[in-house]
């Protein structure tokens, strides 16, 4: 007797599917959530690759991938997620000037958390020897300063977090990440086979993000404009600037925004999160106030750290301006709409 085919065959949820649905179609945003878990996924020069089939039908690489796990139109708590307090601020220390992004709040908070032993190591993104961003573990202020500032390119930093979590250690960790990475952290904490994420990640600082760029695309674009990598910092100034600002070797350059958009990660288009809604603290640019950050305290841990920094005089803080928050809301709503439209378009081919 020939048995009929099984009415439903479980779909693989491992590397094979990650390759088919995320990596091979070019949707990977190099967050690094799949890296450092196994030897099959590697990261070199800003790009994730899988040289060999792993042969398993399920794996955390799929479970943790924020692109693979994208669901509905977004969280229910409003366009910028849960907020205990909204601030605008900047670091008072002068050693961050010109190195950190905007007001240097992220660097200062991270340095403080390390100094106060709230965490023992922090996973951040910094330029590697080739100029490509990559995950890095820092354990003090000098390390934080070395990684300060953004170059807007995917660095797979969560791979470094996975490596840290795989070690036989129990010290607390902090993570700084983009919305995609904060989403992946949420999946890590919820994963039944990843209990150490709950135990060891004590601080999550999220960044605001409208889109991110693949390093190799950035490097090629820079080369076309005669700019030598590595970059020390980059920024998207608010509209209507229409430019991408980069600092390289002390020199400043402007690249046309449309050319930069053209190389951005296609996978970013489906992201509905502007402000890293799952973080303890979210930090981004403060519109209309250059050199300052907007800070959203989302958890008591985040609010407590902010309070501590302010109390020590490390941060100059003001309540966020309603107009600025409204603008952030509108931008977040627009990102959600774009993501919904993109997802809809993909669903219907």
């Amino acid at each position: 007797m020939v048995l009929p085919a099984a009415p439903f065959a479980p779909q693989p949820t491992g590397l094979e599917r990650l390759l088919a649905e995320v990596i091979n179609p070019g949707l990977c945003v190099a967050c690094g959530a799949c890296l450092g878990l196994c030897p099959h996924l590697i990261f070199l020069d800003g790009q994730v690759a899988a040289p060999d089939p792993c042969g398993l039908t399920s794996g955390r690489c799929w479970d943790l991938c924020p692109v693979a796990q994208r669901g509905g139109p977004g969280a229910a708590q409003g366009p910028i997620g849960p907020v205990l307090g909204a601030w605008q601020g900047r670091a008072t220390a002068r050693d961050l000037e010109g190195r950190a992004q905007y007001g240097g709040v992220v660097s200062e908070l991270l340095a403080l958390a390390l100094e106060q032993a709230l965490v023992q190591e922090a996973v951040v993104t910094a330029a590697g020897p080739r100029g490509a961003p990559q995950g890095l573990r820092v354990s003090g202020r000098s390390g934080v300063l070395g990684a300060a500032g953004s170059i807007y390119a995917g660095g797979g930093a969560l791979g470094e977090l996975n490596r840290a979590l795989a070690e036989d250690a129990c010290h607390p960790l902090a993570v700084v990440g983009l919305p995609c990475q904060i989403q992946a952290l949420g999946a890590m904490r919820a994963h039944p086979d990843y209990p150490q994420t709950l135990e060891r990640i004590h601080l999550v600082i999220g960044l605001f993000c409208t889109m991110n760029l693949p390093w190799r695309g950035v490097r090629d674009l820079l080369a076309r404009h005669g700019v030598q990598a590595p970059l020390s910092r980059a920024d998207f100034p608010p509209p209507p600037a229409g430019i991408f600002q980069v600092w390289s070797g002390g020199a400043y350059h402007e690249l046309p925004l449309d050319q930069v958009r053209a190389i951005s990660y296609p996978g970013c288009a489906g992201c509905a999160d502007l402000t890293s809604e799952g973080a303890d603290l979210s930090v981004g640019a403060c519109e209309g106030k250059p050199g300052w950050n907007t800070i959203l305290a989302r958890t008591h841990a985040g609010a407590g750290l902010l309070e501590l920094a302010a109390g020590k005089g490390l941060l100059e803080l003001e309540p966020a301006q309603p107009a600025s928050l409204e603008h952030l809301n509108q931008a977040a709503i627009a990102k959600r709409k774009r993501a919904a439209a993109w997802s809809e378009e993909r669903r219907h081919g």
């Binding site: 196994c38 030897p39 060999d52 792993c54 042969g55 086979d193």
Partner: peptide
């Protein structure tokens, strides 16, 4: 286990 699957002997 997940994360290796006989990496040294299979791959």
């Amino acid at each position: 286990d997940c994360g290796c699957h006989r990496f040294c002997t299979r791959v």
